[in-house]
Computed example of a mutant assay.
Amino acid sequence: MSPAVSLTGASMTRFGEREGRLVGLLTEAAADCLADAAVDPAAVDHLYVAESGGSYDGPQGLATAVAGELGLAPAHAACVEQTSAAGAAGVYSAVRAVRTGEADCALVVGGEKLTHASTAAATDRISAVAHPAAYRHGVTIPAFAGMAARRYLDRFDAPREALAAVAVKNHRHGLANPKAHLREEVAVADVLESPVVADPLRLYDFCPLSDGAAAVLVTSASWADERAGGGDDERVRLAGIAGATGAHVAHERDDLTRMGAVERVGDAALERAGVDRGEVDVLEVHDMFSILEPLQLEGLGVAERGSGWRLAAEGTSARDGRLPVNTSGGLKSKGHPIAASGVAQLVELYDQLTDRAGRRQVPASTGLACNVGGFGNCAIVTVLTADG
């Protein structure tokens, strides 16, 4: 029987425009995470550094560089790349190491330094995740999001204001997050009047380019009981995790409004966790574009097909609603340092499940995070439950 897995510490830097290099941001988040868990660096068996593959900051050998800065030798150190799902992929690698007994204590940190690059350069690198055949014809990731949004609105007779409501909600949530990149309230009119990026999506339907890093400590529950500081109220159980890929080429997808990879991993992660959808109290989903939030909620089965747009429009997914979504502000407000995002989702859920989310706090004992690569090219879902 595989050992139970815990998150025993979590931390993130402030997201936004940051000075310095990526190694410094990664080291800051990782050191704060170890301090949060009251764990000495010498106790770390494995280090996983998530990277998106964009090489935005230039340096190579990030894993050994971070290990050196933290004094982790002789810990095993490796980078994990999976585009914008890299953060959760790093966590998945750590979970597998703990469950196989290769490690008792694995540190995961993901980060990105993006704001020093021009918007054009950063967008070009991000769009490289698209299949070359599609990219040659202008089907970038933002363009794909625009096509999916148009199809979704038309097919399900959803008002354009419903997507704007996603951005409005997540900005409102971000106001309560002191580490969020965009801490400003927006109105539906602001979203609808912002410049067109990929019709019908406009500038305020998109997340910002951000710098930042986030880290979590993944350990066996038995090791945490014996060695980590604090009691059960300071860690959570990583109850289930699963990953899958979807169609890479746009024209190979049967339905632009359906995220097959999310459907598969949502089912698998919940089954592995022994958790029913109705037991999920709070979710963090990958809202790089506003359309992605309802598509993921439908893929995860917490919203009926074609009705995911209603959750934000009707207040269901607000912090004080029946099913809070993106209490952190999501990628839309919190920011999207690409490889950090999947880890930062778990930092938010950790804070929620240990009752330390402050003004963002909601009643929660079970949380679910969905980290997506590209536009559903791959997905990883993680289910956390309160320990004790």
Rank of each mutant, 00 (worst) to 15 (best):
S194E: 09
V282G: 02
F206R: 10
A189I: 12
S194H: 10
A250Y: 13
V262H: 06
A215F: 00
R272E: 15
H251Y: 11
D232M: 01
E252W: 15
E185L: 15
F289T: 08
G266H: 04
L209V: 15
S290G: 00
V262A: 12
A239C: 11
R277A: 14
L270V: 06
G231F: 09
G212D: 11
I241G: 06
A213Y: 13
E293L: 12
A187N: 15
S194Q: 09
L209A: 14
L209T: 12
R237G: 02
D276E: 14
G240D: 10
T257R: 01
R237M: 13
L292K: 00
D276Q: 14
L217V: 00
A250M: 13
D233E: 11
V249A: 15
C207P: 05
A213N: 05
D276R: 13
V191A: 03
A261K: 04
R277E: 13
G231C: 09
L203G: 03
R253S: 11
D287H: 07
A213W: 12
G266E: 13
V249C: 07
A198C: 04
S222R: 15
V262F: 07
A189W: 10
V280W: 05
V197T: 02
Q296L: 11
S290E: 03
A242V: 05
V218W: 00
G278Y: 10
G243W: 06
E263P: 08
P200T: 12
A221V: 03
F289C: 08
A247M: 12
E271Y: 11
V188Q: 01
V280M: 07
E234R: 14
H251P: 11
A215M: 08
V265F: 01
T245V: 09
L238V: 02
F289Y: 15
V196N: 11
T219H: 10
D254C: 00
A273C: 00
D267F: 04
A273G: 14
L295V: 00
S220E: 01
F206P: 04
A221E: 12
R202G: 05
P200G: 10
A224V: 01
D254K: 13
